[in-house]
Structure formats: C-alpha cells, structure tokens
C-alpha cells in the first residue's frame, strides 16, 4: 500500500509549496481580510495540508506514528480540542490582529488538527469517519445559523455583513458535504452489491479516500 516514493516526494513538495504560498504576507492579508475567506478558505486549507501529510505517509511509518500517538481516538481527541479552540471567535480575532497568534494558527492547524486526523483516518473505519463527517456537518450548520442570526459582531475584526455571509457559506458547505457523503455511501453500497451478484468485479482496493465509499474497514494487527 506504500505510495511510490516519487509520488510521495511530489506530494511533500506540493504541501510545502501551498503552505509557503498561504504564508506569504499578501496572501495572508487577502485571505484574512474577510471572515469568509479566513475561516472557510485559509483555515481549512491549512488543516488539509496536515491531513494530506498524515494520510499519505508510507503505511509503515504512519502505523508506527499512529500507535505511538495512542491510536485513532487519541488523535481525534487532540484534533477536536484544537478545532474547538480555533472556533472561538476570540481566536479568529487574535489571528487577524496579531502576527504571533497568526503564526500559532499556521503551526497548530496543520499539526494538531490535520495531521492527527490524517494519521487516524484509515484506522477510523466507516463508522469513525461517519462520526467525523456528521460532527463537521452539524457544527457547520449550528455555527452558520448562529452567524446569520447574531445581531452583533462576534469578531471585532470583521463586518456584520461579512459575518452573515460566512454563516451562509457554512450552511452551503454543510449541505454540500452532506450530499457528497450521502451519495458516496450509496455508491459504495451499490458497487459492493453488484460485485456480490458477480455482474462486475469488485472495485480494486483503493487507498482510503476521504469519503466512505469502497474503503475496507481497518483492523489493527
């Protein structure tokens, strides 16, 4: 299951390049100028970079790291707490206003949310991944509704209109994730049933993707 080294090297380069690009002062200023871009573009990208790293590590290294870290539950716990911290409006305000807080954000989003989730992802199994997705969707819906309905600004750095716009985008993203997840769930089931009836060979085992379709459940050892 180990990805060919060349492919991995390309991935590391891509991750490093995107990180460097995001960290450039003009990119930071532009992405942090509105709440929507800050919360829903820059921050998810930073988490995604860490996720890609953890998820695409060579299998042996990844499993060793995962075992060292105490397994998938410990990883998810760390990621949830870090994510909760960065969901505090105060933390977003601080990142927009202070370079030190922004630097902390650039380090902790990939390393404390993305990386552990990526390490644990295969080990989570369909149910664990479903738990992550449903949590993400419900959190986005809740926060989105709050941001749309709030009559006052929760962040001093962002306009009230901007806040409502971010809220609407959270609702849209939640709906999209839910639809994609749901569709993938059915696609995976259908493929499995067709394979059972012998109509078509089962899809070859793939590397565990983001969505639950066609992923063999993980068994430790």
């Amino acid at each position: 299951m180990t990805a060919p080294p060349l492919r991995n090297r390309r991935l590391w380069l891509a991750v490093a390049a995107v990180f460097a690009l995001l960290a450039l002062p003009p990119a930071r200023a532009w992405l942090e100028a509105t709440m929507t871009r800050h919360m829903l573009v820059q921050m998810p990208l930073l988490v995604g970079l860490g996720f890609a790293l953890g998820h695409r590590l060579p299998a042996r290294l990844r499993n060793r790291l995962l075992a060292r870290a105490g397994g998938p539950l410990a990883c998810l716990t760390a990621a949830s707490f870090a994510a909760t911290y960065w969901m505090l409006p105060r933390a977003l305000d601080a990142a927009a206003a202070s370079a030190a807080a922004d630097a902390a954000k650039f380090v902790t989003l990939p390393l404390l949310i993305g990386l552990p989730t990526g390490l644990a992802w295969r080990a989570l199994g369909v149910i664990g991944r479903g738990f992550v997705w449903t949590n993400l969707v419900s959190m986005l819906l809740f926060a989105g509704w709050l941001y749309i309905a709030a009559p006052v600004r929760v962040c001093n750095s962002y306009l009230l209109d901007d806040q409502a716009q971010a809220g609407w985008w959270m609702i849209r993203i939640a709906a999209f994730i839910f639809a994609a997840w749901f569709a993938a769930l059915f696609a995976g089931r259908r493929r499995g049933m067709m394979a059972m009836r012998g109509r078509r060979p089962a899809a070859p085992p793939r590397r565990a993707g983001l969505l639950p379709a066609a992923m063999p459940p993980f068994r430790m050892q």
Binding site: G71, L73, T77
Partner: peptide, 26 residues
C-alpha cells in the same frame, strides 16, 4: 479495535491538555 493502556493514557492527556487550553483561551 485494541484499546490499550497507551491509548487510554494519551487520549486522557489530550483531553486534559485540550480542556486546559480551552479554559485558558476563554
């Protein structure tokens, strides 16, 4: 899924540390 002593220890440590950070941050 195995849930050994290490898993229990690190999960608990993450939760305690995470709770402390949230307490401090709010």
């Amino acid at each position: 899924m195995m849930f050994g002593r290490r898993a229990l220890a690190t999960t608990t440590a993450c939760a305690l540390l995470g709770g402390a950070v949230l307490w401090w941050g709010s």
